[in-house]
């Protein structure tokens, strides 16, 4: 079987190889067409998915062929999106976990400022160079949280 579209009355069907496109990519592309078409997915053979797009309104052969072409392009986009997601999944999980579930931590900048302040304090026992806004209570003391 090939991916060449077969056009019928208000419908077009074609077969997608799962060796080229994973099922969730095919499903992801299908989902984006449900406003314009009724979408049927079937498995005519192992590792093959048949896609049937039935137009919700009148559609000529040219429109149906364009629809199949658009679906094919969307498969490529969905495949790229899946690659982007899979490759970065662990990093994103880490970042999200840190954002929502880790105890509030001072940002890198806050931490560097705190280190600089600590160094200043170490050589300045009289606290003459304590920044004015610390004295005024304007900035949180080093090491405080932002939460």
């Amino acid at each position: 079987m090939s991916m060449e579209p077969v056009i019928g009355e208000r419908r077009v069907h074609f077969v997608v190889s799962e060796e080229l496109y994973p099922l969730d990519v095919i499903q992801g592309a299908s989902y984006l067409f449900i406003d314009r078409c009724y979408v049927w997915l079937d498995r005519p053979a192992d590792k093959q998915v048949q896609v049937v797009l039935r137009s919700k309104g009148q559609a000529g052969a040219e429109e149906l062929e364009a629809l199949a072409g658009e679906f094919a392009n969307e498969l490529l986009n969905q495949a790229l999106r899946k690659n982007i997601g899979d490759t970065n999944a662990k990093i994103r999980e880490f970042v999200m976990a840190r954002a929502f579930f880790a105890a509030d931590m001072p940002s890198t900048v806050d931490r560097l400022l705190a280190e600089l302040d600590a160094e200043e304090m170490a050589v300045d026992p009289l606290e003459i160079s304590v920044p004015w806004d610390h004295k005024a209570g304007g900035r949180p003391p080093a090491g405080s949280t932002d939460g």
Binding site: L32, F33, E63, A66, L67, N73, E74, L76, L80, T87
Partner: peptide, 17 residues
Amino acid sequence: MKGLLTTPLRVDPTAFA
């Protein structure tokens, strides 16, 4: 029959770095 959420871009998923 234009789709709202489909992506009108030509991409090559195999070239993703």
